[in-house]
Design a protein around this nucleic acid. Sequence first.
RNA 1: GGGCCUAUAAGCUAGUGGCAAACUGACUCGUUUACACCGAGUAUUCCCAGGUUCGAUCCCUGGUAGGCCCACCA
Length: 802
Amino acid sequence: MANKYNVQEVESKIREFWEKKKIYKFDKKRKGEIYSIDTPPPTVSGKMHIGHSFSYSQQDFIARFNRMKGNVFYPFGTDDNGLPTERLIEKTKKVKSKNMSRAEFIKLCLKTLKEITPDFIDDWKKLGISCDYDIYYSTIDENSRKISQNSFLELYGKELVYKKEFPTLWCPDCQTAIAQAELEDKEENSLFSTLKFKVMSSSSEENSKNAEDLKNAKANTILIATTRPELLSACVAVFVNPKDKRYKKLVGKKAKVPLFDFEVPILEDESADMEKGTGVLMICSYGDRFDVDAINRHKLDAKLVLGKDGKILDGDYEGLKVKQARKQVLEDLDKAGLIVDKKEISHVVNVHDKCGNCIEFLTTEQWFIKILDKKNELIKQGKKIKWYPEYMFKRYENWVNGLEWDWSISRERHFGIPIPVWYCDDCNEIILADKKELPVDPLQIKKKCPKCKKNAKGEEKVLDTWATSSLTPQIASNIVKGDVKLPYSLRPQAHDIIRTWAFYTIIKSLYHENKIPWDNVMVSGFVTLKGEKMSKSKGNVIQPQEVLENYGADALRFWAASSKLGEDLDYQEKDLITGKKFINKLINASRFVFMNLEDFNGKRPKKLEVIDELFLVKVDELIKSVTERFENYEYSKAKMEVEKFFWNMFCDNYLEIVKKRIYQNKKGKESAQYALYNGLLNVLKLIAPIMPFITEEIYQTYFKKNEKDESIHLSEWPVVSLLLKGNKDSKIAENSKFDKLIDIIVKVRQKKSDNKKSMNSEIVLHISKKEYDEIGDMIEDLKDVTNAVEVKEGRFKVEFVE
RNA sequence: GGGCCUAUAAGCUAGUGGCAAACUGACUCGUUUACACCGAGUAUUCCCAGGUUCGAUCCCUGGUAGGCCCACCA
């Protein structure tokens, strides 16, 4: 091994070795239970970002640990069927999906994906993510399309999918329906305007044909505050609270909508908050979700004023976008003297998570999956899964409890998996695709209505990307022909998509297989920079490619292992440096160990020196603890324990203790060699899941000739019994002797330091009789490490030899 | 407004019902058979208040601050 460690060189050499030898190939015949991982397919976005490198490292620790304990199924996929991909293609290819035919655009998407995906995946390989990249899926490939469309058909058959015309969440910018889970909050400044509505003293007998009378009637005025004056023309009612005495007498009368001069009923409804605004609430179709509820409740007729493009449909404001219309309406109201008060407020509005634009409610025909009547069952499923950290289950539960709509799965997009249905032009019959023809694009295939034999029209909508990515376990299983079944062992993911990916996957596997999708979920946090979430807009982005270039994958992974599961981690350059130092130390210690192992035959000597045996007991304790840590997904503690042990126990103490014995060919040399060899090998194995490159490099350089396994990552996870033989209790008792020895060494070092002497200055050491008796069989070692010419009984004292 | 998480040294983090700890940084010292990307040593600390307890940084209650999710959108 070269003296100077060239990270780039070594890591790419090791990577090539892994690929050539197919170290991470899934082989179901390999012994050991299969630990299956539902790998998150990253959205193809050009480059891996730091958050990816963080969370994928964390799942890889677990994957590698389990590979050494048995067998691992670890596929890789990319998510590339939705809006983000459309946007990426539009941006990189400088095209507008809207201006292209669907077939043309899809062709371009697929072609571009083919170009960019390999480079994209390469970043994962460079990080040392140990997936079997041959078990690969894309959420737009044939297998995925087939499974996704099949899921749709199956759920339709079970009456869990339905189509309905309903006011749904709509993004005017993306021009598609969206799901509740795709909403995000955004703080926005708005003008909160108080408008004058005339109250007509109409009774039930009177109506508008007596216009003359009404005009003469004594017209009261009520004030209504709103942030959405552009929806005035869609006003369908005015609500007051039944308990509100101020407005009691108005109930049953009609209010005249300012500017538009039509009348709407004044109704009592609990939802009107007496404290808010003027206590009077106007209901428009549709300002928000409460308008939707209110209109349904009172069976009011909705008015359609907004088009799918977010523009006003007709009237004086036709063609204006929501915000323009708002401005114009306000100006006109102002001119007419209908505004009593205006104030600037800051409030939170719902925006689409993909584009950040305000959502609207539009009545459109959409496909839904039933979930509202299954809340309890879905929570029950969630409870069967083990969540790491445990409290993440709460987030899931809260989300399920707070659901208000069924899952809207259809999207008005070009690029996506088509919904496999046709509609008869004549009788509107829904014609389903045949399972055998999947995957299918209904726009490409002509069908006839089985009833009236007329031509049927293909559905233009596509499935939302979550409708497909919620099937990743089934998609991956299908690649290996069902060798891996649900439930998987593990779903790794970040906490922001509990309400989407985790939730939807749980729904699908409940509906399709009546199972939980996985036994365990491990939830990663985010990467922050100085406490702030990284984002391109803030410009505080760290590129993992640069980190890999400067420090290497092992150091990056070492950093990623320093945060507890579920917790956000602040990016700190110094952590990378610490990782790099640790790598260096591993290299140097290994070189030193093997410098002294040239005449070592690999066999266990008949008798181990006490100190060596005790050291190996320490290693055993470490193995036991680290194994438990990994089993509980506590990789950060595992890392910390190995790091600490290696640096302090192994290098600073044990190596120092046995140095002289080996240099000077003293008695017990073989015993020390044996302990060094096994101690180092086990430490390497314990840290291998976290730092796969350097451990492999050291294994190949020094251990391979004696060890049977082709790669350290295919070697067996260390087991405790190796060293802890015989009476366990007595070993532990003796073990405290080891600690005692360390205590004395520390005290001697302190004395030397106090006296400004070098660590290898010669001394005569005095220790108490009790100590002397206790560590009696290790006196030679004590002499070696403290450079004492003599150890005497008596009060503790360090005498310096001139 | 509801739920959840977090609060420990200058920084980042472990940890425990009984002398509070690692790493980085600071300071002092040392370095000739792995490593100066090293070794040894020193200093500094448990958010606030109340309770349980012989004893609380840890458990309980309340508060404060920060983060996340949800609700609020007239």
